[in-house]
Design a protein around this nucleic acid. Structure first.
Length: 262
DNA sequence: ATGGTAGTTTGACTA
């Protein structure tokens, strides 16, 4: 069987219900993981998603901030909601699919503006969160697992519009990249998108603040799909849907998708 | 070097 997993930081699920439906209708992934739904669980209306065939829905909501959701056409059960740091924030939910695959949907803290953990507690939280994910990967070596989400780090030179100009900008600093690399190594995680598209610039996020995101094209690849190493022969093609940044009232992130075959 | 926009929520925070 084949199935496609998508991840998308939606920046308010209630405001963009129509965009989610348009995406599901056009691209039809079996699984969609959303981050930053910015809503309490009980205020998310799931009718429209169910009518499109997404009958399995998990929501870990939070008022105003954070929040993650998994929409699935494949039967699934919830596995866990983890706090990788000692904070009550809705940044993770995981599920086991009927086909035996586990999905980990993560929203790593953005980390604020100053890339110094002493001076900026938000940056410390971000580094601690990544370290927590690493420790969890060591304690529970991932098997038949797909980890996705807005990880808020662009690790490679070609994952940002200017490696040089972003070395001191949160999301591409050496300490963050090291943390992410070390987490990937500890869990033997495979970056499915770069496995498919090793060369060239790739972005999944463009700031709202740029006057013209498309022509200035100062993007970053913050959203990722990783596979546990036992799935190495099950990874199909990947796409980053840049065109969705041009939809009406878009999120600042676009969906990333990878196909898998079992 | 700075400030630019957006969402949740009504004053201020987070991204």
């Amino acid at each position: 069987m084949q199935f496609t997993v998508a991840t998308w930081n939606i920046n308010s699920i209630r405001l963009r219900e129509n965009l989610v439906c348009k995406f599901l209708d056009q691209y039809k992934p079996e699984i969609l993981c959303l981050q930053e739904i910015k809503s309490p669980t009980e205020l998310v209306d799931t009718k429209a998603y169910r009518s499109l065939g997404y009958n399995y829905i998990l929501i870990h909501g939070q008022k105003a901030y954070n929040g993650v959701t998994i929409l699935s056409k494949i039967p699934m059960v919830e596995v866990a909601r983890r706090n990788f740091i000692n904070k009550e924030e809705a940044r993770h939910i995981s599920a086991r699919l009927e086909n035996g695959i586990t999905i980990e949907n993560c929203y790593v803290p953005a980390g604020g503006d100053i890339p110094d953990p002493e001076e900026n507690p938000k940056f410390k939280d971000k580094l601690d969160f990544i370290a927590g994910m690493k420790q969890w990967s060591i304690n529970h070596p991932p098997k038949k697992t797909i980890l996705v989400g807005d990880l808020n780090i662009a690790p490679l030179e070609n994952d940002v519009w200017s490696h040089k100009q972003l070395l001191k900008v949160v999301s591409h600093t050496p300490v963050e990249v090291e943390g992410m690399t070390s987490l990937m190594k500890a869990g033997r995680w495979i970056d499915t998108v770069r496995t498919n598209i090793p060369e060239g610039k790739l972005y999944s996020w463009w700031s709202y603040r740029a006057r013209n995101w498309d022509t200035s094209d100062r993007g970053r690849r913050l959203d990722h799909i990783w596979a546990s190493s036992d799935l190495v022969n099950n990874i199909g093609e990947s796409v980053i849907l840049r065109e969705i940044r041009g939809w009406e009232r878009p999120s600042d992130h676009v969906p990333v998708m990878t196909k898998f075959s079992l």
